[in-house]
Design a protein around this nucleic acid. Structure first.
Lengths: 205, 205
DNA sequence: GTGGTTCTTGACTGACTAGTCCAGAACGTA
DNA sequence: TACGTTCTGGACTAGTCAGTCAAGAACCAC
């Protein structure tokens, strides 16, 4: 991405950390959405001049996609950390994850929600790259949930006759629904109740 | 809202239908989101001059809230029509409704999704009026689902020991999740599978 | 040092946008 | 028909925004 090899006479090096700039830019897009975010604000927040920003990342759209992809990848990694593990604790990990999403959504005071959801809602109709990232991310998370469900089935905590893919799809929908309802102002208690009910209705052996 | 009583010498009447203008404006906001929608485009699409638009509806924000509230109210009415009725068919109405949401989301080619979800995702962090409308709308729909669940319980199609409020909350989350996943490019089949699985896991008597 | 390269800064541009304003149009009443 | 009122259309304003550019800064190899 960035050329670190110089031909002759090494040139002036970057004075900023690319990841840090992406984090700050992400927060700007996150707070206001893509269309309402201002490149001038991002430049000010990062302390960079606009020239550096454009030189390093291209235009506003490319910068957004970078932050969006990075956020989505980090999200998948976060889910992986919460769900992967031995069959023995699979059901409990699943339960804890669903509860954690509800808690995080409930305690999101500034109601900025999930950037993946926000970006997808705003841009999916106009930006195929956003749709592609969203689809990839949802598929990866669903796969992680399905693996965890299968582990819980092997451990005898979920009905082994159920289709783990179907249950994973349902749970993913519930998670995304909790996120959507949270942004709509649902109470913390009702979000937590949804998480508990979702686990309660899973078929036991 | 609109003054139709004139004091002396009746004045020039509106040459447009307010509902029709709101419909067109809604489609503009729906297609691009709030921030990216242009008042000039709305004026052009409605055929009105900007003066008339501002005179009748105030500014862009007020116009959006009008379309947003109207959309939300219509949505609640639509759900009511699908769910209200005698206990006998309650379960089937519920099943049909969940399936209908999945189908509608799956066949939304232009991926514009639900305006309530889109508007809430974009503006909930900055606009209390949007949050208020979203909360009210979600609460109304959840209430309708809860009534339908209770009917299905009385009809002996859902476990009467289950809490209808909890099941309604779960189903509402699934519906909003289907909508979110649909905008993320999930396949029609997987959306329909989620709808079926959600109904399948409801506790039977 | 000197040269060659890339990075930085912020003023600048051109396009676009929300909102205003006003001259004239369209009405019912007297 | 003349009047008072509200509606209409679109030109206009003031401000905002994404993106560019040029002059200089920082760096290493030689």
């Amino acid at each position: 991405m960035v050329k670190n090899r110089y031909r002759k006479g090494m040139a002036r090096p970057r004075s900023f950390d690319e990841d840090e700039v992406l984090r700050v830019a992400r927060d700007q897009f996150w707070a206001t959405g893509y269309a309402a975010a201002r490149v001038d604000d991002i430049a000010a927040a990062t302390g960079l001049g606009k020239g550096s920003l454009y030189g390093a990342f291209g235009d506003k759209h490319q910068l957004f996609l970078r932050t969006f992809d990075k956020y989505s990848a980090a999200m998948v990694e976060g889910v992986r950390r919460q769900l992967e593990g031995p069959d023995a604790g699979a059901y409990e990990r699943l339960r804890a994850h669903v509860a954690a999403v509800a808690d995080a959504t409930a305690s999101d005071v500034c109601r900025r929600g999930c950037l993946l959801a926000k970006g997808t809602a705003e841009l999916s109709g106009q930006d195929p790259a956003v749709v592609a990232t969203a689809r990839r991310t949802f598929a990866a998370i669903e796969e992680l949930i399905a693996s965890c469900v299968a582990g819980a089935q092997r451990a005898g905590e979920i009905d082994p006759n159920a289709d783990p893919g179907h249950l994973a799809g349902l749970l993913l929908a519930v998670l995304r629904g909790i996120e959507a309802l949270g942004k709509g102002g649902s109470s913390p208690e009702s979000l937590r109740a949804i998480a508990e009910t979702a686990m309660a209705v899973l078929p036991r052996p």
